[in-house]
């Protein structure tokens, strides 16, 4: 096999879920069927890697110093939603429910992996809380043990700055059936039940 072809196959294996066999299939496809697509992919990849960094306000992936959402004047600067990954922004934006701004932790507290408050950029968040513009901090970290611990640490921080902190609700998914829901989620749904107004 040509050395360059082998190099391409090895390079493709860096993608998640791509083993030697799939990498080989991708390489042949790009070279034989779609060289134009391959050219476009390589160009975009280089450009993206070089130009995309982190927003200095919310830490999400952005090609500008301050990302579009942080920069936008139509978003409510008083409400800040804390999430674990940039993918969570897409999920929340999809709901069209939230009009505030975000802060992306890029993970959660996990001391055994060497991730503490500093690694999550909580220094930047602290500075933003101190500025006084934020009135409500919405904690939307995942409902895992690590996500809860992270939410707690941040809520203590918000408390020192006297900022209202809220946590997203978790419980029974829409269209779900109680019978199949795990006990932990169901217990949570019960303790967080709301008044039913008819």
């Amino acid at each position: 096999m040509s050395p360059l072809l082998q190099q391409l196959i090895d390079a493709l294996k860096c993608l998640p879920g791509v083993g030697p066999k799939s990498a080989q299939r991708m390489a042949f496809y790009l070279l034989e069927r779609d060289p134009e697509g391959a050219r476009k992919l390589s160009g975009t990849l280089i450009e993206a890697v070089e130009r995309i960094g982190h927003c200095s306000m919310c830490r999400t992936l952005s090609e500008t110093e301050i990302c579009e959402i942080c920069h936008s004047s139509s978003r409510d600067p008083a409400s800040l939603c804390v999430i674990e990954t940039p993918a969570d922004i897409f999920a929340i934006e999809h709901t069209a429910e939230f009009r505030g701004k975000y802060f992306v932790l890029m993970g959660h507290l996990s001391p055994l992996d060497g991730i503490g408050p500093a690694e999550l950029g909580l220094g930047i968040l602290e500075t933003r809380l101190a500025e006084g513009e934020i009135k409500e901090l919405i904690l939307a970290t995942n409902p895992t043990v690590e996500g809860e611990a992270t939410a707690h640490y941040i809520s203590e921080m918000a408390l020192r700055h006297e900022i209202l902190t809220t946590r997203i609700a978790h419980g029974v998914p829409l269209g779900g059936e109680l019978e199949y829901i795990d006990a932990g989620t169901l217990a949570h749904a019960f303790s967080g039940r709301q008044r039913f107004d008819s």
Binding site: L109, P111, L112, G114, I115, G116, A118, L122, Y153, M157
Partner: peptide, 14 residues
């Protein structure tokens, strides 16, 4: 070093 000890300190003291 125990990383988890940082969890008990405010950000300004880490």
């Amino acid at each position: 070093k125990l990383k988890s000890r940082e969890l008990f300190r405010p950000m300004s003291k880490i």
